[in-house]
């Protein structure tokens, strides 16, 4: 079918893109100043020790041999050992990935839940108090810096009111769910929810504000199209005119931005993660870069690259669903 064929082709293209990412990430090591050896070896290491370390890490082989080794290892999902932690880089990354995904998805859900209805209400009640409220909110939301909002939420909700914990991620969503299903205890989910609420609001506010504005403007533009008048003329209930006809056509730019934003969130929301001491990919990458932990840097970048590619395929598939004129031929 149309969709299957499309998905197959996009997956093939996606693999090419990922290969490009992998290669670039590999080359990055050779154009970045600072030798890996200098970071790994003790400051007073003798030249022989440095030589042995380089051999161990395979750093003295020609580039093309290193590249071949790297690709072969990657195909076996081996990203090498983290220089810093001494464990396989993939273990370190996949231990952090759920935290990042949870936060990204939670922030996206917050954004979708609030922004689209708010944008629709705002557009359909133009120049009324609700509209001014919504546009005011999106202006403030877009201009509020993340770190400030995070700190304020911690200060007010966490410290002054004492309603929610201020930082950390005690339990992951997976284990919390297991606890619920196998032992019937809701405490896990509850703790998880309490901890993710503030970070996802922090991360989701800009997102919500952005999509609200986008929805409002898109709706206003679509409401001016002549098919809307035709739809009204045939007597369709106004809710259907707005949601079935107008909102559907407004979804295309919204999905684009949603996809792009989610992509950046998968890269890790470094600032929010730092503020809330959230153990995600963002802080991991910063640590890895600071210590020239190349296997870890490479592995993280590849995971993020794959995430981007997957989201883009999903976005394109959604385009096809919402806009039948898109064919990708």
């Amino acid at each position: 079918m149309r969709l299957t064929r499309f998905l197959l082709r996009r997956t093939a293209q996606g693999i090419l893109v990922v290969w490009g990412v992998i290669t670039l990430v590999f080359l990055l090591r050779f154009i970045t100043p600072g030798s890996t050896i200098d970071f790994v070896a003790p400051l007073d290491a003798s030249p022989e020790l440095r030589q042995r370390l380089a051999e161990d890490l395979g750093l003295n082989k020609p580039i093309y041999v290193q590249y071949a080794d790297y690709i072969v290892n990657l195909l076996q999902l081996d990203m090498g050992n983290s220089l810093l932690k001494g464990r396989p880089a993939s273990d370190v990354i996949f231990a952090r990935l759920p935290a990042t995904l949870e936060l990204a998805i939670a922030a996206t859900i917050v954004a979708i839940l609030f922004s689209i209805p708010l944008g629709v209400i705002s557009a359909t009640r133009r120049h009324q108090p609700v509209d001014y409220g919504a546009t005011g909110f999106s202006l403030i939301g877009i201009s509020t810096p993340n770190f400030w909002l995070g700190i304020m939420l911690i200060l007010i909700v966490g410290v002054n009111l004492g309603w929610l914990p201020t930082s950390r991620r005690i339990i992951g969503f997976g284990p919390a769910l297991e606890l619920l299903i196998f032992e019937g205890r809701t405490i896990g989910i509850q703790v998880w929810f309490e901890h993710i609420l503030l970070p996802s609001i922090t991360l989701g506010t800009y997102f919500t504000a952005l999509i609200t504005r986008l929805t409002r403007n898109g709706m206003l533009e679509e409401l001016g199209q002549s098919y809307v008048e035709v739809t009204r003329a045939k007597g369709l209930p106004e809710t259907l005119v707005k949601y079935k006809h107008v909102l559907r056509n407004t979804m295309i730019p919204i999905i684009t931005v949603l996809g792009l934003q989610m992509g950046t969130l998968i890269g890790g929301a470094v600032i929010t993660e730092s503020v809330f001491n959230w153990p995600g990919l963002g802080t991991l990458i910063i640590d890895a870069i600071n210590s020239r932990d190349w296997p870890l840097i490479q592995g993280s970048l590849i995971v993020i690259g794959v995430g981007f590619v997957v989201i883009n395929i999903v976005v394109d598939a959604l385009y096809m669903y919402f806009n039948p004129q898109v064919t990708f031929e």
């Binding site: 002549s226 003329a233 045939k234 007597g235 209930p237 559907r248 056509n249 806009n323």
Partner: peptide, 23 residues
Amino acid sequence: RSLRGTAFSMIFQDPESSFNPSL
């Protein structure tokens, strides 16, 4: 509104823009 479409309906000028492109 309950009369639109049933008591009277309307044909518009530009057919290309009078249909929703995504339905």
